[in-house]
């Protein structure tokens, strides 16, 4: 590994100042499960590495406030998956956090790192999209709230600006009953990113939100507000046209080592139908 200066700021303001001064040569370190690999293989060569884990205002945790959950960016997947508030209000996010890598990875991998790394296969990206999350960023110009759908650009690239870091993810607690699920296809459990990730959320008003990843340069959100998909009584033929429209933005790369485009597109439909069934069942069970 090449060497670098390691800094451990104690306030967000200090971290932002160092990040802004360093520009492209400075890099934020959270759990390191992406960054340390890149430092070692030389695909990231920062001269300054800024560790976020000793910043008092960035302590990991989940809190409920003003009708929303705020998850600190440094919260690790193990804790996101186990959090009672996340499990109650956002089951698909808890499910997604619980399948990231292995126990060892989940004990380090943070929610903030997962979104900032912006892998098209990031497991938490799709639940955050269906739950309409907001990314809270702190930078030289102050605080910015970015809708998660406006955050991802392509692998490794987000709309964060120079000097900005993510402090938290906010999730509005749904005002109506909802059901949600997260599913994925992997080659091997515990050791690989998924070849398809998909989350779905249905609500009592009949709105269905799908998000899927690993089938294009960034995760995609698609919304059906006709009420058709959320209604289990609608016959399969009537749904299939709408489902096709939902998946129209999938454009898997032919160069991927994980799976062919044809396989991914086929699996997207299988997983979509499966997740939708679970979400509808959950919604029905919850409103009993």
């Amino acid at each position: 590994m090449h060497t670098f200066a390691y800094v451990r700021p104690t306030t967000v303001a200090e971290a932002v100042a160092i990040l802004d001064a360093g520009g492209r040569d400075a890099r934020v370190l959270a759990g390191g499960t992406d960054l340390v690999i890149r430092l070692r293989d030389g695909s990231a060569t920062p001269t300054t590495v800024i560790d976020l884990k000793r910043i008092a205002d960035l302590r990991p945790g989940v809190r409920e406030e003003g009708g929303r959950l705020t998850i600190s960016a440094t919260t690790v997947m193990t804790d996101v998956a186990a959090d009672p508030l996340v499990r109650r209000h956002f089951p698909a996010l808890a499910e997604a956090a619980a399948v990231v890598g292995s126990v060892q990875i989940r004990n380090r991998a943070t929610l903030g790192g997962n979104v900032c790394n912006a892998s098209p296969a990031a497991d938490t990206a799709t639940p955050l999209l269906v739950f309409d999350a907001t990314v809270v960023a702190e930078g030289p110009g102050g605080t910015r709230r970015i809708a998660i759908d406006d955050f991802f650009v392509r692998s490794g690239v987000t709309t964060l600006q120079r000097g900005e870091l993510v402090t938290a993810i906010e999730l509005p607690i749904p005002a109506v009953a909802t059901g949600s699920a997260h599913v994925r296809r992997t080659r091997r459990r515990g050791h690989d990113l998924a070849s398809v990730t998909l989350s779905v959320r249905v609500d009592a008003l009949g709105v269905t939100r799908f998000a899927y990843g690993s089938v294009g340069p960034r995760p995609v959100l698609a919304v059906d507000d006709t009420g058709v998909l959320a209604d289990p009584a609608v016959p399969a033929e009537a749904r299939s046209a709408i489902l096709e429209r939902m998946f129209a933005d999938a454009s898997p790369s032919p160069r991927s080592m994980r799976a062919s485009p044809a396989y991914r597109l086929a699996m997207l439909r299988v997983l979509g139908a499966r997740a939708l069934r679970s979400a509808i069942e959950q919604l029905a069970a919850g409103s009993d």
Binding site: Y6, L29, G32, T33, V36, Q104, N107, R108
Partner: peptide, 9 residues
């Protein structure tokens, strides 16, 4: 908590 010590500085 278990970690992969190859990924921790």
């Amino acid at each position: 908590r278990t970690v992969d010590s190859c990924l921790v500085l």
